[in-house]
Structure formats: C-alpha cells, structure tokens
Simulated assay, not measured.
Amino acid sequence: MTRHNPYYGYNAYGHSQSGDVSREPVYRQQNSKTHFVMGLAAGAAVAYLLSNKKFREGMATTGEKAWSAVRGEVEELKERLEDTQAELEYYRNLHKGDK
C-alpha cells in the first residue's frame, strides 16, 4: 500500500533528505502564486472592511454592547461574592457561642 505524502523525504526545513540541497524547499514549490493571490484578496477584503464607515460603526456598537455585558457580569459577580462573605461571617458568628 502506497500513500501519497508530498512531504515524504523532506526534513523539517523542507530540504530533501537525500542530501540534494539545491532544490527549493517544499513550501516554495507548492502553489506560491495561489498563496500570493489569496493573501492579496484577504488584504483587500480587510482594507475594504476597515475603510467602510457602516462596518466600523457596527463594530463599535457591537464592542460597546459586549463591554457593557462584561461590566454587568463583573458587577453581578462582585455582589454574589459580597453576599457569600456576609453569609460566611453570619455562620461563623452564629456558632461562636457554642464553644
């Protein structure tokens, strides 16, 4: 059974293990133009989104809502912690007279 493995025979740096160092590394041989075009398209998409006023406003609104939710949850957590501390103090004082 033979498996198709494009990296078989190459070390971690992409060089041939047969000692032939004149060949280009594997990552440079495979789809370099495709990777360039995909990177170019991704960069253009990010630039477009960041320059779009509606997108920026929507992101700012979403960020504000998320931050408000986080602040509210932190405040709720603080209240629960204070309540728990008060209960512990109550039970400690309740059983002090038993000793």
Rank of each mutant, 00 (worst) to 15 (best):
M1W: 12
T2C: 07
T2A: 10
T2G: 07
T2E: 12
R3D: 13
R3I: 15
H4A: 09
H4Y: 13
P6R: 02
P6E: 08
P6G: 10
Y7G: 03
Y7V: 09
Y7D: 06
Y7K: 06
G9N: 00
G9Y: 03
G9M: 04
G9I: 05
G9K: 06
G9R: 03
A12I: 13
A12T: 03
A12E: 07
Y13F: 13
Y13C: 11
G14S: 06
H15V: 11
S18V: 01
S18C: 14
G19I: 01
G19Y: 08
D20R: 13
S22N: 00
R23V: 10
R23T: 12
P25L: 11
V26Y: 02
V26P: 00
V26N: 00
V26L: 09
Y27V: 10
R28M: 07
Q29H: 13
Q29P: 03
Q29T: 07
N31D: 14
N31G: 14
S32Y: 05
S32I: 09
S32N: 03
K33T: 13
K33C: 04
T34Y: 05
H35E: 08
H35V: 05
H35G: 03
V37S: 07
V37R: 05
V37H: 06
G39E: 08
L40V: 06
L40N: 03
A42H: 13
A45S: 11
A45W: 15
A45E: 10
V46C: 06
V46Y: 15
V46F: 10
V46T: 04
A47T: 11
S51M: 12
S51P: 02
S51D: 08
N52M: 10
K53F: 05
K53Y: 02
K53T: 04
K54S: 05
K54R: 11
F55I: 13
F55P: 06
F55A: 09
R56C: 14
R56T: 10
E57T: 04
E57H: 01
A60L: 07
T61N: 12
T62R: 15
T62N: 15
W67S: 08
S68W: 02
A69N: 07
A69M: 10
E73A: 13
V74M: 06
V74Y: 04
E76R: 08
E76A: 12
K78T: 09
E79G: 09
R80Y: 07
L81C: 01
L81T: 01
E82G: 06
E82C: 07
D83L: 01
D83F: 01
D83P: 02
T84F: 03
Q85N: 08
A86N: 01
A86F: 00
A86L: 02
E87Q: 15
L88S: 00
L88C: 02
E89P: 00
E89N: 00
E89D: 09
R92I: 05
R92G: 01
N93F: 04
L94N: 00
L94D: 01
D98S: 07
D98Q: 10
